[in-house]
Write a protein that binds this DNA or RNA. Structure first.
Lengths: 204, 204
DNA sequence: TGTACATCAGTGAACGCGCGTTCACTGATGTAC
DNA sequence: TGTACATCAGTGAACGCGCGTTCACTGATGTAC
């Protein structure tokens, strides 16, 4: 890994160090100095690759959104086999991402960084979101015409439910433990919700 | 307010200063020194009333949970006029609380403080949660027997949905803007969810 | 009512710490001849 | 293939800052006589 004076790929090594720290301590617990130390490098070296602390954090989030978008796209699977299955899969993917990439997740959703200050970040974030919105819109086609709520609304509902489940029940958070796994909780919640939309039979 | 050498009610003044700071900067932006300054007092004076920074933060959260529990209890209204109405009211109350008491809310849900380290805090937090659970359980009585999901599950769903709506759509957060107000979003979401439970007519 | 005194809520100076950031520098790498 | 040199990724020391916390202290308050 360490090959003498020059590091080789310090940039990515710093991102990964930041990731580990963020996963462990949350986005506010991450510091440039600690990340540098974890990468076996002087804090000043960071400035060869990033404009500063916030820029490093933004890069972590950017990579997170990219992974997230890819995961969502994969789960969506072009709306196959059915619009419904695809939609449900994206909901599950949200939670799977939060579990598998906690550092990225926290950088993205708990760091309070300003998307508008990083246009490239905003772009890739929008791309991730649009997958779910596409799935919602496609699903909306299958609903009885008159009583369709706007698709942007129920993509927001699923997004919010998923986010809430992660924040409250996947962390040790103050929302308290529940006897259910986050996965079961979300699965059941989405099921009930889709039944409410008339997209699942009521007796299931 | 300032009556010479002694402050009068420094303890509560510090809590309120912390509240303002937390509302503005989030729980990590709040510092003991700034709170002391806002209360026109030396940082050292804080130690007459609190064990330290974390203890002050915990007191903010404690007062928050107390207000929250009272608000929920009021919204629940002993399950009147109907179990359904009471349940919906508690959902709305969650969001109303987040909007009206942003400092308390952030201290409670975004500060990452450990409930187990503050037993009294855990107690009052549990009290707040139990109101929603009571409402869910009572509502559960009105459901067809066989297909009742556990009431603890759908209180968790509503809790998660409410939390997600607040985090993603009430802040400028990266969850993106939606064309709907958080209130409308939550209202509609709970409506669809309750329909999914068979507690609202499907054609509404 | 007036004085002596105990209490205790505040002051102000000081501390050690880790932070992000800067700067002049050094020495490894890779290219030109 | 060997040497001279430009490049540039890293070092190491230093900075100013605000933080939480401590300590000996002071002076306002309120009580006992």
């Amino acid at each position: 890994m360490k090959q003498g004076y020059h590091h080789g790929n310090l940039r990515q090594a710093l991102v990964e160090a930041a990731l580990v720290l963020t996963a462990k301590l949350g986005p506010t617990g991450f510091t440039l100095s600690e990340a540098a130390k974890a990468a076996d490098v002087t804090p000043a070296a960071v400035y060869r690759h990033f404009a500063g602390r916030d820029d490093l954090m933004a890069e972590v989030a950017r990579q997170g959104y990219a992974i997230f978008a890819a995961l969502m796209e994969f789960a969506y699977n072009n709306g196959q086999p059915t619009a419904l299955a695809a939609f449900e899969a994206t909901g599950r993917a949200y939670l799977a991402f939060a579990r598998k990439y906690p550092g990225h997740y926290k950088a993205m959703f708990e760091s309070g960084l300003n998307l508008n200050a990083h246009p490239d970040l905003a772009l890739v974030a929008q791309k991730a979101r649009s997958v779910l919105e596409k799935a919602a819109e496609q699903l909306s086609q299958h609903m009885p015409q008159g009583k369709r709520p706007p698709s942007s609304m129920f993509s927001a509902h699923i997004w919010a439910l998923s986010h809430g489940v992660v924040e409250l029940y996947m962390r040790g958070a103050p929302g308290a433990q529940s006897p259910f796994t986050p996965e079961d909780l979300l699965e059941a919640g989405i099921g009930i919700y889709l039944r409410g939309l008339g997209l699942l039979p009521p007796d299931l």
